[in-house]
Amino acid sequence: MSDARSDILAGIRRALKRGPVDGETRRALEARLQGHRPNLVPKRGQTAGRERIDAFVQMAEFSLATVTRVARAEQVPQAVADYLKSQNLPAELRMAPDPGLDAIPWANLPLLKIARGKPEPGDEVGLTGVFAGIAETGTLMLLSGPRSPSTLNFLPETHIAVVRADRLVGSYEDGWSALRQKNAAMPRTVNFITGPSRSGDIEQTLQLGAHGPRRLHIIVVDDGTPPGER
């Protein structure tokens, strides 16, 4: 018995009536794979400056996330505390071990109990940074790694994400470019998150909080630096 791999590849070539791709065609295909050429990016994915921040907030809210805007990182702890209070949640959270989040002066608000690391069963609130926010659909882009455990995006019932306005990009394609600039290789997991978890599986009635978080709250830190200029 020949092996499945060669059988499948041979079957494909037979069906396409040709041998393995080589020569000029092969070089063209390899160039296409390395070219990262975007296809059509819709106009709404091409926002800039303040317009981009507004677009991001509007689309995130459309996806049923809630958004607070603050002007400085120093205001984030209070915004988190206010949000937790408004939802009748305890002032306790599990925070991603992200140096960007560590730079926030949490100690100014000692009532907020913060544990760092990946989530434990029973953690009700997770707090993460993001790699980027995508204005086109109000989507968060998170990369797995030591400073961002992926399970923290899914296990706690409430997900709070802190997004600096200068980390907002227009489109998914801009998100990929930013990732390629930062990393030579893909991380294990890239999560695109658009709103809180939901299901319509019982009689097509929308219910939030199917398996992932019931609430997604985004705190946009907008200190006036235009998006894209880090």
């Binding site: 890239v190 999560n191 992932g212």
Partner: peptide
């Protein structure tokens, strides 16, 4: 507009 979770695994 977009599904809630689009996950790329490598």
């Amino acid at each position: 507009e977009f599904s809630v979770y689009t996950t790329v695994s490598t």
